[in-house]
Simulated assay, not measured.
Amino acid sequence: MINSRYAASMVNRDHWIPRNIDLVTPSSARLYDYYLGGSNNFAADRELARKVLAVAPQIRATALANRAFLRRAVRYLVAAGIRQFLDIGAGIPTVGNTHQIAQQLDPDIRVVYVDNEPVAVAHSELLLSDEPNAEIVEADFRDPAGVLDARETRALLDFDQPIGLLLCAVLHYVPDADRPAEILASYREALAPGSHVAITHITGDDQPDALREVAELYATSQNPGQPRSRDEFTALFAGFEVVEPGVVYLDQWRPERPEDVGEHPERSLAYGAVGRLVS
């Protein structure tokens, strides 16, 4: 259920736009919101999104497939015993957020969202104002200490118990120069055995030309992207035991119905997988 404060903010949208926000340079979080059919984006975002969709119309389906993967992964992790989540790069709130999915199964599940996009944080603060078991932290994935030591994180999450670390559509915005594997290792070292990580990532393995054009367009945004190969994506799970069905295209990861996969799962343009921390 959406709380009244959040609903009121949607009526007068000017009230939720953070001060000093860059309205000229497109943001990946707001582009993603546009692909999902949201309204929390600006003219510059919509202009770039239309260019992206012109060269790769399947990107909208990719966003929807990523959202569906998140839903299935959260349900899988709850079934595996996870009762607390750290959702990094959560983006602008939309239908089916992590705490909503998980708390349908257990209302006591705790969720900390993390994002560095001001609009995403502003909306999350409104949405979560009446949620005692969910918080938002404004921080960047590349600053593990800023995420892990944040007051909200420490208040809600018990790092002596397993945690579900969610990194959906995040790591393709972290270039090799920023050493994403090393950063991810810092998070892994903070987790208790039995914790899990769920990651999705854009790839150009099967449609390199489309992804090349998309990457060129995203280079003009606040968040340039870097597609990675299957081997590069798999390497991000170092220290984790990848659970079945392994590294697959988004629609292939534990589909709710066989017909949800379709004849061309590679058109999702993204891989997804879940790993378990054994020791």
Rank of each mutant, 00 (worst) to 15 (best):
I2M: 07
R5E: 15
R5H: 11
Y6K: 00
A7N: 08
A7L: 15
A7R: 15
A8E: 14
S9W: 11
V11W: 00
N12I: 13
H15R: 14
I17D: 04
I17C: 03
P18D: 10
R19L: 11
I21R: 11
L23A: 11
T25D: 06
Y32T: 09
S39L: 12
A44W: 07
D45W: 10
E47P: 00
L48P: 08
L53W: 07
L53C: 08
A54S: 14
A56C: 15
Q58C: 12
A61Q: 13
R67E: 07
L70M: 15
A73I: 05
R75H: 03
I82F: 05
R83E: 14
Q84K: 07
I88T: 03
G89N: 09
A90S: 15
A90V: 01
P93G: 12
V95F: 10
N97R: 07
H99R: 10
Q100G: 14
Q103A: 09
Q104K: 09
Q104G: 12
D106H: 02
D108S: 14
D108M: 05
R110I: 01
V111K: 03
V112I: 04
V112M: 06
V114F: 02
D115W: 12
N116A: 06
N116G: 06
V119R: 05
V121H: 02
A122V: 04
H123P: 00
L128R: 04
S129P: 00
D130M: 04
E131R: 11
A150E: 08
T153L: 10
L157M: 13
D158L: 03
L165T: 03
L167N: 06
V170N: 05
V174L: 11
P175S: 14
D176N: 11
P180Q: 03
A181P: 01
E182S: 07
E182Y: 00
I183T: 15
S186T: 09
S186A: 13
R188C: 11
R188V: 12
L191F: 11
P193Q: 08
G194S: 03
H196M: 11
A198W: 06
I202Y: 03
T203W: 06
D205C: 03
D205P: 02
D206R: 03
Q207D: 11
Q207H: 15
A210F: 05
Y218F: 14
Q222E: 14
R228Y: 10
S229I: 09
A238T: 14
G239A: 07
G239M: 06
E244L: 03
V248G: 02
Y249A: 05
Y249M: 04
Q252I: 00
W253V: 02
H264Y: 10
R267N: 10
L269I: 01
Y271H: 02
A273R: 00
V274D: 01
V274C: 02
V274W: 01
V274I: 14
G275T: 08
V278E: 13
S279T: 04
